[in-house]
């Protein structure tokens, strides 16, 4: 189908875009367009105005000084190809699993965070890496931890006039043990379940562990009980099994469809958490 008729604007600065968003309540930001355009073509979304931020200078690019600061308009392909993300191999591996080459060439990391698709890959990865986003709106610029960004189905804590300008990964888990493991839907390639884990150790014990789960819950969430079960323990098979068993406990009501029921998704969360931790631990 064709989308319903809409106005199209292409601002040349973030401030101009914010102004347009503030004065058009039914406006939507177009980044890479690989979530918004399909939704519009299926007429599931019908924004009155589409604000294309693709021509705003300075929104793309990766700065790896002190963690990584990734411009919102950086494409998945640019992340995969970047030589600046060596401290976060999980991010590169997960990004390779996003969509297909055409999606990766157009889709952006900022778009992924703002859209907050329940089956996106990088939402889980960013939770595990304790990332934040920089958002700019009428009220100025602020930093929002992804822990606080994802609040509901396709819903974020951003205000209507706020645009994500960058995704920021702190140094916390640079070169930490990390892995992203995914069960991809055979049709869409989206995560039926995806689990991202990042673990730091001190004196042979887990110092800090974060586990991001996507696909199963309403939006990407952390498996906090499993994280707690790792902390202070030796990252061995026994610890991993015990933690993985708790991985589906903190996710709320789980998604279900004809491909995978909530019960099966919970099972996959536990199995994939075990696999991700095992892979991260190099066992």
């Amino acid at each position: 189908m064709y989308p319903q008729q809409f106005e199209y604007v292409r601002p040349s600065s973030v401030d101009e875009a914010i102004g347009i968003l503030a004065s058009n309540p039914d406006a939507k930001v177009l980044a890479g367009g690989h979530s918004l355009i399909p939704a519009m073509k299926l007429r599931l979304a019908a924004p009155g105005t589409v604000v294309d931020i693709g021509k705003i200078d300075g929104l793309a690019g990766i700065d790896s000084r002190g963690g990584a600061k990734i411009g919102a308009m950086t494409t998945y392909a640019a992340i995969v190809d970047s030589d600046k993300l060596g401290d976060f191999p999980m991010l590169t591996e997960a990004t390779k699993q996003v969509g297909d080459p055409s999606v990766r060439n157009r889709g952006t990391i900022g778009g992924s965070m703002a859209h907050n698709d329940p089956a996106a890959d990088l939402t889980a990865v960013m939770l595990a890496l304790n990332a934040s986003v920089t958002a700019k709106g009428k009220g100025g610029e602020r930093e929002v931890a992804v822990d606080d960004l994802f609040v509901g189905l396709l819903t974020t804590s951003l205000a209507e006039d706020e645009i994500i300008t960058s995704v920021n990964i702190p140094n916390d888990f640079a070169n930490a043990k990390q892995a992203y493991v995914k069960h991809a839907h055979p049709a869409s390639g989206y995560a039926v379940v995806g689990v991202a884990v990042a673990v730091t150790e001190k004196d042979g014990k887990v110092e800090s562990a974060r586990i991001g789960v996507t696909g199963a819950p309403e939006h990407a969430k952390r498996a906090t009980s499993a994280e707690a079960a790792l902390t202070g323990k030796t990252l061995d098979a026994e610890t991993i099994a015990a933690a993985a068993a708790l991985a589906a406990d903190d996710l709320g009501e789980l998604n279900g469809d004809v491909y995978a029921s909530p019960e099966y998704r919970a099972h996959l969360v536990r199995v994939l958490t075990k696999r991700a931790l095992t892979q991260a631990a190099g066992l």
């Binding site: 839907h185 055979p186 049709a187 869409s188 989206y190 004809v258 491909y259």
Partner: peptide, 29 residues
């Protein structure tokens, strides 16, 4: 055998009406 099936619910609503839901095999399968 491995992936494809159209599902209707009991109201006659097609639940697998897009290529996001109906799993056609891909070469790498």
């Amino acid at each position: 055998v491995l992936w494809e099936e159209l599902h209707y619910d009991s109201n006659g609503e097609l639940l697998t009406g897009t290529l996001n839901d109906y799993a056609l095999p891909k070469a790498q399968f």
